[in-house]
Design a protein around this nucleic acid. Structure first.
Length: 305
DNA sequence: TATCCAAGGTAAGTT
DNA sequence: AACTTACCTTGGATA
């Protein structure tokens, strides 16, 4: 096993690992103490998080553990995880520079200042696709449980440091699952969506990574080719996996924020409201504003700001 | 202990 | 294109 550290001071804007991984944008990481999203007064802030990197990222299924203590990130893995962490947690993003590009707006400033070091993640595309298909009408904590269940039942088991971890299922593995088996993972009406979208990827008919390189709105339309992917889910995949930092998923929290703080941005349709709020959030880094505002409102209630 | 309700929406059908 | 409606499941709220 290899270990290493990344100094938080070496990152522009630092990093808040817990805020980044437990703000609801990612289901790729799992808290080793099993207390993900547990608000019940458990000691937080230095917990280990684990993930199984898919072969297309690491060359082979590879377990990575990371925690934040005393101004540094500590990691454990079978090989050097520095580059993987930099990639997955977007540690190269210059947060102060991004904040300077955001508009001078009280809600955005409050939300940004409240969570120093909260970064957008760069999760692998296929798990992100499935995760956000599952997210429809679902609580964040339960989405996470659903992903863990699918990984345990259909994903490859990996031994690391004397423990067993499960990779998120590959497209082939998930496409091989029956709709009933997926329903047994508590997916409900999302089960056939997951089955069909996994099949599309497994059969080579559609690949979420092929959205890359397209103009933003064209990329969003492309992703809507998957079953169970509408505008909002497509925006989540673009922002949290494919690096479209201008994407602003219009979820219920942001809809509430629009109604209360930016009523002029409500243009009726998703496309037009999206354009308006994207502009209000400063364009190219609007997704960073979205994620901070989302996290802030979810933690503090919609009335503040 | 029951019952009710909302949760990071989408697809399909109707106007 | 815009507007309805149904949809699985479950944890937490309310009675």
């Amino acid at each position: 096993m290899e270990t290493g550290t990344i100094e938080v001071d070496s990152l522009a804007g630092g990093v808040d690992l817990q805020a980044t991984l437990e703000s609801g944008q990612s289901c790729f990481w799992d808290r080793a103490d099993g207390r993900m999203y547990d608000e019940s007064g458990v000691a937080r802030g230095s917990a280990w998080y684990t993930a199984v990197l898919p072969p297309d990222l690491a060359g082979d299924d590879e377990v990575v553990r990371v925690r934040q203590t005393d101004g540094r990130l500590e990691w454990e893995s079978s090989t050097d995880a520095t580059d993987h962490l930099t990639h997955l947690l977007r540690l190269d993003d210059d947060l102060p520079a991004i904040q300077r590009e955001l508009p001078d707006d009280p809600l955005i400033e409050t939300a940004f200042d409240a969570y120093d070091g909260l970064r957008i993640v760069r999760d692998p595309p296929f798990p992100t696709l499935i995760t956000f298909i599952c997210s429809a009408q679902m609580r964040v904590k339960r989405i996470h449980t659903m992903q863990r269940t699918m990984a345990r039942r259909f994903g490859t088991a990996i031994e690391f440091d004397g423990e067993t971890y499960h990779a998120f299922p590959t497209p082939d593995q998930l496409a091989a699952a029956t709709v009933d088996e997926l329903r047994d993972c508590s997916l409900g009406y999302r089960a056939p969506y997951v089955a069909e979208s996994a099949r599309l990827v497994a059969d080579g008919e559609l690949d979420p990574t092929d959205a890359r390189g397209r103009e933003y709105e064209a990329a969003r339309e492309f992703l809507k080719g998957f079953m169970g992917v509408g505008d909002k889910v497509a925006d989540c995949i673009l922002l949290f996996s494919l690096g479209y930092l201008e994407a602003v998923p219009l979820d219920t929290w942001i809809q509430t924020a629009i109604a209360e703080h930016y009523p002029d941005c409500d243009r009726g349709s998703y496309t037009e409201t999206s354009r308006a709020i994207r502009e209000a959030f400063g364009g190219q880094y609007a997704g960073y504003a979205q994620t901070h505002v989302f996290h802030y409102l979810r933690a503090n209630g919609p009335d503040l700001g």
